[in-house]
């Protein structure tokens, strides 16, 4: 087992950041922590990387105990914090050399691990880190977290604020790292990234709500979702909320996702209701649930 967490709780002054968290991550697994800001994701990362001590519970990372084997853990893991934490005044090359030296290695020694990523930022290697775009900063941070060939990689919201193209590239990099046997624990607020993980934990307000493969989580969702669109999307959400048997209404891109309280829901009744409210070009059809649907219904 690469990461094993048992009954971990962590409290700051008045805030219960984590409440009795237990789960395991297998070796070579790409495991996602999916949850919004304030869910407790960063606290969990800081506990597992020995930067914080839990109030209760224990955990092992790469077979080392987070309370006892602090040095060993720090040598065996790579950690990319959510906030860009490299030296802004050092260049790309200097940052990387710095981290390699700290861990008693060289860029050459583990170059195969970072090559894919490094070649993308190498043309700018003499540029200071502070002057890089978001996407490049993130690639550099990943290189620095990998340079000592860690067994376990912790990535705290690596794609927040990153555009869809760079996000896609980033996840392709993660897949390749996984193939090299590195265990990855990654957190994200983007629900669409959940489907790219082997398994995910949905986390909110310090508690784990569900753990399973993304497909299994979606399949286990029992409610029927209807996607609704009309010619007046702005009013549609307000009007759908007034439909007597509505359970929930959420905007989903070009559609509204509508769930009804009753199994006997009749699309035509809703259609008439919307028509009477002045909507035209009404389309209502069954939709496939996504992780985001499941998450919002927890």
């Amino acid at each position: 087992m690469s990461i094993s967490i048992q009954n971990i709780s962590k409290k700051y002054k008045n805030v219960q950041a984590l409440q009795n968290i237990t789960f395991e991550v297998q070796e070579g697994e790409l495991f996602g922590l999916i949850g919004p800001d304030g869910a407790g994701k960063t606290t969990l990362f800081r506990l597992l990387t020995t930067l914080l001590v839990p109030n209760e519970g224990n955990a092992t990372v790469a077979d080392y105990n987070i309370l006892k084997h602090i040095k060993e853990i720090r040598n065996s893991v790579g950690y990319m914090p959510g906030k860009f934490s490299l030296y802004q005044d050092l260049t790309i090359a200097e940052n990387l050399t710095f981290f390699a030296t700290i861990f008693g290695t060289t860029i050459e020694e583990n170059y195969d691990l970072i090559e894919d990523i490094y070649v993308q930022i190498e043309p700018f290697k003499n540029r200071r880190a502070g002057a890089l775009s978001g996407g490049m900063k993130q690639k550099l941070a990943l290189c620095c977290a990998l340079i000592h060939k860690p067994k376990v990689l912790f990535l705290d919201e690596p794609t927040t604020g990153v555009d869809p193209v760079s996000r896609k590239e980033f996840w392709e990099m993660l897949k390749r790292l996984k193939q090299k046997g590195i265990t990855i624990l990654v957190s994200t607020p983007y629900m669409d990234e959940a489907s790219l993980c082997d398994r995910i934990a949905l986390i909110q307000k310090g508690k784990i709500l569900k753990i399973d493969s993304p497909d299994a989580i979606v399949e286990a969702y029992e409610k029927t979702i209807y996607e609704v669109a009309t010619n007046q999307m702005h009013n549609l959400i307000l009007d759908l909320k007034e439909f007597p048997s509505q359970y929930s209404v959420f905007a989903f891109g070009e559609f509204m996702h509508y769930i009804d309280k009753n199994d006997s829901f009749d699309m035509d009744v809703l259609r008439t209701f919307l028509h009477d409210k002045g909507h035209q070009n009404i389309s209502i059809q069954k939709a496939t649930a996504t992780i985001e649907d499941v998450f919002m219904d927890l």
Binding site: P36, P189, H234, I237
Partner: peptide, 16 residues
């Protein structure tokens, strides 16, 4: 950015 899915949608309702 980084906001939970429900709040994100409530935010858009404010925008509308």
């Amino acid at each position: 950015g980084g906001v939970d899915p429900i709040t994100r949608r409530q935010f858009w309702e404010l925008i509308y």
